[in-house]
């Protein structure tokens, strides 16, 4: 639907994926529950989008434990940070272009 030459990243078409990236670029490492709380989404929904981001190589997953509970944290990769800033630049250009 969107013009392919405007540089917008398809992966970030989704609000939740965009939100996850926004959080991860300003926080070193964030766990699943904090992401869930911050974005106000359900477990399953968030998990799907995290898998998608991981498959694209935009985030790295660390599986750990606090006591017996699993504590999975997420971190943005260099590729991810690059893709995200390119996406923001594209958004800015869209806004400038139409004005």
């Amino acid at each position: 639907m969107r013009n392919p030459i405007n540089g917008l990243n398809k992966v970030f078409d989704n609000r939740i994926r965009l939100g996850v990236m926004s959080i991860l670029v300003v926080n070193e490492e964030v766990n699943f529950n904090d992401l869930k709380q911050m974005l106000e989404v359900t477990d399953g929904n968030l998990a799907t989008h995290l898998v998608n981001l991981e498959e694209n190589g935009y985030i790295r997953v660390h599986k750990g434990f606090i006591g017996k509970k699993t504590n999975t944290t997420y971190e943005v990769t260099k590729t991810g940070a690059r893709a995200f800033s390119d996406h923001i630049a594209a958004l800015e250009n869209m806004i400038k272009g139409i004005k």
Binding site: S22, M38, L39, I95
Partner: peptide, 13 residues
Amino acid sequence: DIQDIRRIMERSS
């Protein structure tokens, strides 16, 4: 989108 990104960045940091 930009406004959302900004808001979430602020809010999460």
